[in-house]
Design a protein around this nucleic acid. Structure first.
Lengths: 238, 238
DNA sequence: TCGCTACTTTGTGCTGGCTCAAATTCAGAT
DNA sequence: ATCTGAATTTGAGCCAGCACAAAGTAGCGA
């Protein structure tokens, strides 16, 4: 699919990679050039970790292509997925929230292309580049809001509503139109969905089967297409 | 208890109110004076809201004394408590995360004294006062971490563990030593605890009764004292 | 002192979603 | 074509914690 090799700085990344992304959109071509020249580009295949919870936060990242799942792992080995991050967003921005270590693990949900910079450049980015800091904090605000919503959901909703909400959120954030409806744009298993909604893969499987019978979704292995979003919204609200 | 009247700017707030608080600790006396002169001081009695979810974020706050509960209310009227904030912390800092409205409601858990400033001063504080922004973002980082932990807890732990965790967190953040052990420093009902742990007041009541029989806690109405924190830690880990 | 209200305790029955178990299907590798 | 491991489906039984119900108790105001 792609011959870019891991751990290699690509020769002359093109400015257009960053110009349309919010944290950089207010910058001059010249600044973007400087930023790119300081960046390391790397391709990660599906299902590997970009950084690990608790590790020293020595780099920060921009996801150029692909999807990343932010997960936490409990002492007993269970995984809980906190967020999904689509291409175009920063991640691993521990410094922005005053941390020296990464608060969670970032795993690729698909093959992904990631730029990264040493964390010592963080303060430079914040002070030198107009709009960088503002946009970064908006991102953080959105992620806080999302986590907040999940707490409320888990505290008040039934499993079926939570799973419906999770699927809706995923098609909002990463949905891709196809002939039958809107598809979640990366491979996602029943297990993944259960880690996102605090339930078991068995229950998720039963729910998806039931929804498929009622014509709300279609699903193949690792793929989910929502054919009737409206009905799913109704389920998500009880 | 206190004759300070609501809605009134106190004459000459003393600098010592702020000097030891992290966001202001690196500042000169002169800066603190300026900051205080711009502040409005207000006393709120127990159980009232300081600001409401969704309202325009026109002021930000410093809790000088008391405790505040940050709650969200679902469409069906259930409350979910997201955080408890002890004296000495900023709150309502929507601007810091790029929001124009407050993301949740802040209710006083005790009588409280709060300073506030118009949000238009936010950018001034960030740019003019050394350490203000850093400390603010640490606070945000801590709150994110706490919310994250709650998501993981709710996803993986049994009710008894969650309630134990919540009680432990409360005594860590707001605990006060007394003759029998460590007491949660503000009035908290079974209902409040259930909103914090996504369960019912009935279940919380049963758990506390059981723990009291085993000598781990003592509780009167609205008051909880932990007499054996270690045993509670063991419960919280399953 | 009395009464009202808010808070707390305790009992009983029920059920949503979990655990345990096993069969089936699919995709990629050889 | 066949094999293998991962993903999915489906069944059956069970139980933690909820809903419902009712009684008890502490604090506060008049």
């Amino acid at each position: 699919m792609n011959e870019v090799s891991p751990r290699k700085t690509l020769p002359r990344l093109d400015e257009s990679l960053l110009t349309h992304l919010p944290p950089f959109s207010r910058l001059e071509r010249r600044d973007i050039r400087t930023i790119l020249d300081q960046a390391t580009s790397r391709r990660h295949e599906e299902g590997v970790s970009i950084f690990d919870e608790g590790a020293a936060a020595d780099r920060f990242f921009m996801l150029l292509d692909g999807y990343v799942r932010v997960v936490r792992i409990t002492p007993t080995g269970e995984q809980v997925t906190a967020l999904h991050i689509p291409a175009g967003q920063l991640l691993g921005i521990a410094k922005a929230i005053g941390r020296e270590t990464y608060p969670a693990t970032a795993m690729t949900a698909t093959e992904s292309i990631v730029l990264s910079w040493p964390m010592r450049l963080w303060d430079t980015f914040v002070s030198d580049y107009d709009g960088f800091s503002t946009e970064t904090y908006k991102t953080i605000g959105n992620r806080m809001g999302e986590m907040n919503n999940r707490v409320v959901e888990m505290a008040t909703q039934q499993v079926e509503q939570r799973v419906a909400n999770a699927v809706l959120r995923l098609i909002n954030q990463t949905g891709r139109k196809n002939s039958d409806g809107i598809e979640i744009d990366f491979p996602i298993t029943r297990q993944d969905l259960s880690e996102l909604t605090a339930t078991t893969l068995h229950t998720v499987s039963r729910l998806l089967s039931a929804w498929e019978k009622r014509g709300l979704v279609q699903s193949k292995r690792k793929r989910i297409t929502v054919t009737n979003p409206h009905a799913l919204v109704e389920i998500s609200q009880g």
